[in-house]
Design a protein around this nucleic acid. Structure first.
Lengths: 109, 109
DNA sequence: TTGATACTTTGACAAACGTCAATATATCCA
DNA sequence: TGGATATATTGACGTTTGTCAAAGTATCAA
């Protein structure tokens, strides 16, 4: 049976300097943005389009999702700071934010 | 109004070699495992414990979650291939799988 | 101003998720 | 064999998420 406060610590140096709660939340937002297969492919497509970016209308067909769904995913990516957009007439060109993954980079070993 | 198949392609070289669906799914599993703040801190704690690992009982208190919740998160991390465990008596020592993030590494710029 | 195209927002719904209490399983020790 | 500790599983719950149809907003051109 498991009872309150009965856990016996193994007295192992748990952590020297554990990640802060704030940083964990910030990082998890970035990870979360890439945690859906469609959204990951979406980001991949946008990133591959380089500085020029890619017209959002060209992203619907290859991902086999409705246009509103793609729009929703792009919003998630933008709010996570991974992509941004530039308007050109009625079109929106999406591009990857430079160094958007540097924070994740520093977390990896 | 948005109508079926009306999207006009901008004829931009969309992708040279877009990520495959399988790879996207595999990668998103890893990202998903780190998409929760508590689970991210959990992995951070385990990883910091090095080869020896850390006793699961020492992870409940610092993360301020119930024992079943920590157990659940550890299972998610294990199924994502990020951590593994070694039994020692009644204890389970969790440790980070070496190079578990190499796949994510190769995805980053 | 009217119509066409590009995109976003809203509303709805099922599925997945994070959480905990309660219970079950595993391992050791007396 | 029992009791104690460590961990996992089950079941339930409210919340979040991915999705689409429908409707709304934006921009341009005739």
């Amino acid at each position: 049976m498991y009872a309150e406060g009965m856990a016996q610590s193994r007295n192992i140096p748990l952590t020297k300097r554990p990640i802060s709660d704030e940083r964990a939340t910030s990082l998890s937002t970035a990870f979360s943005a890439l945690s859906d297969p469609i959204r990951l492919r979406l980001f991949d497509l946008v990133r591959r389009a380089g500085e020029t970016g890619v017209c959002s209308c060209d992203l619907v067909e290859p991902l086999d999702r409705s246009q509103p769904t793609i729009s929703h995913h792009l919003k998630v990516l933008r709010e996570a700071g991974l992509v941004d957009s530039r308007r050109e007439g009625t079109w929106l060109w999406y591009f990857a934010v430079p160094d958007c993954l540097s924070d994740i980079q520093t977390f990896l070993p």
